[in-house]
Design a protein around this nucleic acid. Structure first.
Length: 305
DNA sequence: GGGCAGGTGTAAT
DNA sequence: ATTACACCTGCC
């Protein structure tokens, strides 16, 4: 019997899992159930009018894993966050389209590699790359063997350890569709496996120190560093500025006037403060849904909607 | 088929 | 401190 996760009230599962912060979930064809890898668990979830359900596995253990992962084991629920966000008139206007987005508590190591791979890339390919890395170099889960589930984009394999990734031949990394990012992934893996980069210490650092430390990893620039801070280290003030968020902020807050990434960062910190990370997720999802540049005549800078 | 996609490193102002 | 350019790969 599936277990209802009452703590997840207010969470919109699909919006959350499809909001670009995780690449380890796959919906079934009907869209009713989703399967994903969290740590060494293969989880199956669903959502209906009653709420979010844990379908499998059904151990109390898994229940705790999911709640922590969904970020709903804390004090402030999604509804409370959104009430605060809605004090901003712009966010109040887009929230009906984006309500229910949560910020997941993901593994810092997995986030470092995932978002290095995300640079100049698109979600389907990032997803394939990570699945390929896991299938090639990660431990099989759930009794699967390495030869099974060849086609599964979200294969049942744990994310590879820094050691396994660092030891991989570059040919192997290339075969996982990393392209020119392969050397970045290798360098990051060596930094961590050698102990030069201490992930536990990273967790304890103040945000700016952690950002600076992350920026020293090859392939980690401003945007990727903020993704790691937000999705892996739960620093809710982080505000990753990608092309979509920039588009949204320029259009919704600056009358469509061009702004540099730095200006947008500063604006977000001042405007959203401790909720910047949530604001960013809502703006991102809204932009992808409603601010496609190809949707109208003219290039970037005009129209929208 | 050239251009682009949830950027970054590098070289040149 | 800012700006142009290349870059794996798949998709249009």
């Amino acid at each position: 019997v599936p277990v209802l996760l009452v703590e997840a009230e207010g969470l919109h599962l699909r919006r959350t899992l499809d909001s670009g912060q995780t690449f380890r979930w796959r919906w079934d064809t009907a869209g009713g159930e989703v399967t994903g890898i969290v740590g060494r668990s293969v989880l199956r979830l669903a959502q209906d009018a009653a709420g979010v359900w844990l379908i499998a596995p059904q151990s109390p253990d898994a229940r705790q894993t999911v709640l922590r992962y969904l970020g709903v084991d804390g004090h402030t629920g999604v509804a409370g966050i959104e009430r605060a966000l809605a004090r901003d008139p712009v966010l109040a206007r887009i929230l009906p389209h984006t309500s229910g987005i949560g910020l997941l508590a993901q593994d810092p190591w997995e986030m470092i590699i995932s978002f290095i791979i995300s640079q100049n890339n698109n979600i389907p390919k990032i997803t394939r790359s990570i699945a390929s890395l896991a299938r090639t170099l990660g431990d099989p889960l759930d009794g699967h063997t390495r030869t099974s589930s060849q086609q599964d984009p979200v294969s049942s394999y744990a994310f590879p350890s820094p050691e396994r990734l660092a030891a991989a031949r570059s040919q192997v990394l290339r075969a996982c569709l990393l392209g020119y990012r392969a050397p970045y992934v290798r360098a990051a893996s060596r930094l961590v496996s050698s102990g030069q980069l201490d992930l536990a210490a990273l967790q304890r650092m103040p945000e700016d120190d952690a950002r600076e430390t992350l920026r020293r990893i090859p392939g980690v620039g401003e945007k990727v560093a903020d993704c790691i801070l937000l999705f892996g280290l739960r620093r809710m003030t982080a505000f990753p500025v990608d092309v979509w968020v920039r588009r949204a902020v320029e259009r919704l807050y600056f009358r469509n006037r061009p702004r540099t990434a730095r200006e947008i960062q500063q604006f977000a910190r001042a405007r959203f403060g401790a909720l910047a990370g949530y604001a960013q997720q809502h703006l991102f999802v809204y932009a992808r849904g409603h601010l496609r540049p190809t949707a109208g005549p003219g290039r970037r800078g005009l129209n929208g909607q």
